[in-house]
Nucleic acid binder design. Structure first.
Length: 478
DNA sequence: TGAAATGTTGGGGCG
DNA sequence: ACGCCCCAACATTTC
């Protein structure tokens, strides 16, 4: 008896049902086996961080719901697992949406050719990017190294169409001989932190839809200027959904575009597109410069005199630097797996330029802590801040956390939210308590180094030291 | 997707 | 009335 043709959809960073071309194609073949493989070996050097594992766990759970419980999860080497599945259950087709990290590209290429030798039909699709790295190149065929021309080139290209599949018509089959339970992945453990995370986030496709609607309602109209203010709800907070592919960038682009056109918000939207294109730019950079996660793109930085200071590092990580905006950001990160974009730049600048700690160490902390931890975005951004990347911030651009605080959190709402011990502090001193006369703080019941740390470094002298260190590299600047 | 130092200008106080 | 100084406020430059 001839059974129906079967297809595997291998979910990776596309944990959604809507606008998922690999799923659509699998559905068109016949019966579908949706799988996810936790491939920890592939992330050599970059094992999933604790925030990522938490998010992934909930996202897979949510995807399984959307697939009526048909999702099968495995851990181990994808080639072995897929090979075994196709031979055990006579599966003729394997589909996935492409990933672009160097180790993923290498792995997927090997899997594709091995399965093809076995006579399996394998096809991969564009599902995570508006345009893939090889679709946005300079006229001479080389990759862009500067954002603005990349952006211009990117923007003139037509945005791809949205793919749709009606989930009710999907027919699944169960691999009866395997343990495919999500729990066996052991991704996360329940504790106080994870409980709090559940009050902050709704991972998964539905949560993504909700976040997108919220952004259209409350963020987009004030995006251009408002996104600089950490206490205003102007940023999209879509990054984790885009990283895990719970929202497709094509859908996000289209929804924002439709809404912006109907409400005359095109200028605001354009600034949001820039951020989407930064994501694509980072993806392209990592694709063409695969070592940027471990090495300075600008080789002159190899001689940089980084300082080893576990004491400063842990104070930065714990949000105990004595600079309230820095501490607010770092505590938001630890507590919620997220930090507002501007505050990311300021905290990163502080680590690299005021504490002179290697950007790779900061990147590693963010990688572990962020729910939107993304290899390309994270490491490109850190190199950008450090000044060691392509098209990076000039080395002399040192953020002053106190000035930034007064400018972008003038009422200290963000600070008070994350550094509650400073709530009684007078507004005049809250951006830099160490500069306050101690009796002024005592009046409000605050004692430095007891209730809140005094500043761990002096901004002026550390800034000068950073400039001197950078100068010693003879980095060419504008 | 800076900040600080330096330069310039112009109004007001004052002799 | 006038020049001089002071010093914001703003602009430019330098790091």
């Amino acid at each position: 008896m001839a059974s129906k043709p079967k297809a595997i959809i291998w979910f990776r960073q596309d944990l959604r049902v809507k606008d998922n071309p690999a799923l659509t194609h699998a559905a068109s073949v016949g019966e579908v086996l949706p799988i996810y493989i936790l491939d920890e070996k592939n992330n050599a050097g970059f094992p999933l961080g604790r925030a990522s594992r938490w998010w992934l766990n909930h996202s897979l759970w949510s995807l399984n719901q959307s697939l009526n419980g048909a999702l099968c999860t495995f851990r181990g080497d994808p080639i072995k697992i897929i090979e075994e599945l196709v031979s055990t259950y006579q599966i003729g087709n394997v589909f996935w949406n492409r990933s672009y990290e160097p180790s993923q590209v290498e792995r997927d290429t090997a899997i594709k050719s091995k399965l093809q030798i076995l006579g399996i039909k394998v096809e991969s699709f564009k599902g995570s990017m508006l345009h893939e790295p090889w679709e946005v190149l300079k006229p001479d065929g080389h990759p862009y190294r500067v954002f603005t021309p990349f952006y211009k080139q990117h923007r003139i290209k037509a945005i791809p169409r949205i793919d749709t599949v009606d989930i009710d018509y999907l027919q699944f089959f169960k691999p009866s001989q395997h343990d495919t339970d999500l729990k066996s992945l052991n991704l996360t453990r329940e504790n106080d932190w994870s409980k709090n995370m559940l009050s902050e986030w709704i991972p998964g496709e539905k949560g993504g839809e909700k976040a997108l609607k919220l952004f259209l309602d409350q963020g987009l109209f004030q995006y251009k200027l408002g996104r600089d203010f950490p206490e205003r709800n102007a940023v999209s907070q879509l990054s984790p959904y885009l990283h895990f592919g719970e929202l497709s960038p094509i859908r996000v682009w289209n929804e924002v575009n439709n809404y912006a056109v109907s409400k005359n918000l095109e200028t605001q939207a354009e600034h949001f597109y820039r951020e989407l294109v930064w994501r694509e730019f980072s993806c392209s950079l990592l694709y063409y410069f695969p070592e940027l996660t471990v090495k300075n793109i600008n080789k002159r930085f190899d001689a940089f005199p980084w300082r080893e200071s576990t004491e400063f590092l842990s104070k930065w990580q714990d949000g105990e630097t004595g600079y309230p905006l820095i501490d607010a950001g770092m505590r938001q990160l630890s507590r919620t797996g997220y930090m507002h974009n501007r505050v990311r730049m300021i905290t990163a600048s502080f680590l690299v330029k005021n504490l002179l700690i290697d950007w790779r160490i900061g990147a590693e902390w963010f990688w572990d802590s962020l729910v939107d931890a993304d290899l390309a975005n994270n490491y490109c951004s850190w190199q950008w801040v450090a000044g060691s990347g392509v098209d990076a911030a000039p080395y002399f651009r040192v953020f002053n956390p106190v000035t930034q605080s007064k400018k972008f959190d003038s009422e200290a709402k963000y600070i008070k939210n994350w550094v509650p011990e400073l709530v009684p502090c007078p507004n005049k001193y809250i951006h830099d308590p160490s500069s306050a006369p101690s009796e002024e703080l005592q009046k409000r019941g605050i004692e430095l180094d007891k209730d809140y740390p005094s500043a761990i470094v002096d901004l002026k002298t550390t800034r000068e030291a950073a400039l001197a260190a950078y100068k010693s590299l003879n980095v060419v600047s504008q």
